[in-house]
């Protein structure tokens, strides 16, 4: 456990010492802020229309403003997650520090988990820092706090899923760029997979839809907790982390 904590803290520290991290942080804040502005403007327009004609449409803060803003964050994170994770194992494999780290009484599982928790913490921090806009809503109006927190839970869970894919890609190679470029298409594929249900035969469509990260995020995003969604994200993340551990071991066995 001490070793896990040591790896976690070292990795966390490494992020804050990396200039790339700050660039990503700022880009994420700016883009999220821009989306927030757009959604607030759109929401204002809709609420004015609704005020003129209350019968025709209803306004709801969670599904029309908070949810979409968070969904945008998740989409952005799909692009950022591969950049956050690409370094994690690829760099240590290339520089040889992994060999030294594994000569201590440290297991591959501890290495992968320590690094995963570190990057997940960084992810959480980025989400938290970009939440000032949503926080502002409490001053302006009355958002439903449990629904909003459920949305955040969704963000954290989908983030864990993204990061676990990135970690596996990083375990597969010594080249960070390769790790990132391998992660993007996988994440996008799992995001859009559910769209196939419009055209695919119903049975296939159902399967594809239930494998899609977006499908499971949507309900949480609207403030609904369904154990099926929670189970999906936990299993998805566990599967990719487990595979990353196995790959890390197996790659050494036949160098």
């Amino acid at each position: 456990m001490k070793a896990l904590k040591a790896i976690y803290l070292r990795e966390l520290r490494a992020y804050f010492l990396s200039p790339i991290f700050y660039v990503i942080l700022v880009v994420f804040q700016v883009v999220t802020g821009f989306f927030y502005f757009l959604h607030v403007a759109g929401y204002m327009e809709r609420s004015m229309m609704a005020a003129r004609n209350p019968m025709a449409m209803q306004v709801d803060l969670q599904t029309m403003l908070i949810g979409p803003v968070m969904l945008n964050m998740a989409f952005l994170m799909m692009i950022i997650a591969p950049i956050l994770t690409m370094r994690l194992l690829a760099e240590e494999k290339k520089s040889g520090t992994l060999e030294l780290l594994l000569s201590y009484p440290v297991s591959d599982t501890m290495v992968v988990l320590g690094k995963f928790l570190a990057v997940w913490t960084v992810y959480a921090l980025m989400i938290l820092l970009s939440s000032s806009g949503l926080g502002l809503l409490f001053w302006l109006t009355e958002p439903h706090l449990p629904a909003m927190l459920t949305g955040y839970l969704g963000l954290m869970l989908v983030g864990a899923a993204f990061l676990s894919v990135g970690l596996l890609a990083s375990a597969l190679t010594e080249n960070q760029i390769v790790a990132a470029t391998n992660t993007f298409p996988v994440l996008i594929l799992f995001w859009v997979m559910g769209f196939a249900s419009f055209v695919a035969p119903p049975a296939t469509g159902k399967v594809l839809e239930s494998l899609s990260t977006l499908t499971h995020l949507e309900k949480l995003n609207q403030g609904l907790i369904d154990t099926a969604d929670l189970a999906f994200f936990v299993l998805f993340t566990a599967f990719f982390l487990f595979t990353a551990i196995r790959v890390l071991e197996a790659k050494r066995w036949k160098v």
Binding site: A3, L9, R13, A14, L17, T97, E99, Y104, P105
Partner: peptide
Amino acid sequence: PESVPLYSEMRVGEYLHFVGRAKGL
């Protein structure tokens, strides 16, 4: 190891402290 792989972004004292922690101290 022969190539002496170390974390170049860490400071010497900090690194050796990390090693101790990783070794379970």
